[in-house]
Design a protein around this nucleic acid. Structure first.
Length: 287
DNA sequence: CATCCGTGGTA
DNA sequence: TTACCAAGGAT
């Protein structure tokens, strides 16, 4: 049995019942879910996703409201620029693609907020196209099972896609199941901290296991800066105030949110530059 | 290629 | 408590 077959069989027996895997889930739903899942865990995405798709069941529905409504409905999913990009995406799909989510990777890549991962994920999971998909889970599984390393090195789109392509089944539905299965394997079994190798469908072929689990010696990932006291935190505080208010938030109210004036000004300027806030008479509002 | 961009859960 | 981690993308 090949690695691909083992992963596909395991996936069919162990896949979680997630909203975006339901029968009849739309391509638009897939696109929204992929935006939300960019760096945000599944458990936090599910409730927001249901709300969004109930309120905006098609791209045209979202495109018809101001972008600030998207930012507000994003709530605390984090990285709120994604809400802005998703709204811009809905506008572009409505204007350029007749309201239909494209199935072509290059057309998807041309949309705001869609990069290499999301473009392929939509083409594969919404439309069943045959492409390799590479996300953080798959990079880790390949690093271990194929390369015999405990952690993936720095991302390299060409190398990662080549590695995935080499394993990808030819038949479209099998290829889609393999992509999903590799992601699910990385999410449930081949996890970052304490992998559950005894449950792994490819343990007998895993290069990392066969090599005796060598400790990773390559370049370390850049450490994420502390959130407490960061510009990100201040931006978050200001944006939460804008989301909560339906009238302009005054400069005085913003001043009360954070004591360090230069940092506060920097955060507000950043929000304005990103289009997450706009200055109006009497203060600041969502776009 | 490195850095910036939120927020919350977990070991 | 701190540090790491989570279906990335833009610049």
């Amino acid at each position: 049995m090949t690695v691909a077959t083992a992963v596909v069989d395991w996936y069919h027996a162990n896949r979680r019942d997630l909203p975006w895997r339901r029968d009849g889930f739309t391509a638009w739903g897939t696109l929204v879910s992929e935006f939300m899942l960019q760096q945000t865990p599944v458990s936090r995405v599910i409730p927001r996703l249901e709300e969004w798709l109930t309120r905006w069941p098609t791209p045209a529905d979202l495109a018809a409201v101001p972008p600030g409504e998207a930012v507000r409905a994003w709530q605390s999913l984090g990285y709120p620029r994604r809400a802005l990009w998703l709204h811009a995406c809905a506008v572009a799909i409505t204007e350029r693609h007749g309201g239909v989510v494209p199935d072509d990777v290059d057309a998807l890549l041309a949309l705001p907020g869609i990069g290499d991962y999301t473009a392929r994920a939509v083409a594969v999971f919404a439309y069943g196209e045959r492409h390799p998909v590479v996300d953080t889970n798959i990079r880790r599984v390949i690093a271990r099972a194929v390369d015999g390393q405990g952690e993936p090195g720095p991302p390299s789109a060409k190398r990662d896609l080549t590695a995935m392509e080499a394993l990808l089944p030819h038949e479209r539905s099998a290829a889609a199941a393999f992509n999903a299965g590799m992601m699910e394997l990385g999410a449930l079994v081949c996890v970052a901290r304490t992998p559950r190798c005894e449950e792994c469908p490819v343990r007998d072929a895993c290069a990392w296991r066969l090599a005796g689990y060598p400790v990773y010696e390559g370049p370390r990932k850049a450490v994420q800066k502390k959130y407490e006291g960061s510009d990100r935190q201040v931006r978050g505080l200001i944006l939460a105030e804008l989301r909560a208010s339906h009238i302009p938030v005054t400069q005085a109210e913003i001043d009360a949110l954070w004591p360090d004036a230069p940092q506060r000004d920097r955060a507000l300027a950043g929000l304005l530059a990103d289009g997450l806030a706009i200055a109006v008479d009497g203060g600041y509002v969502l776009p």
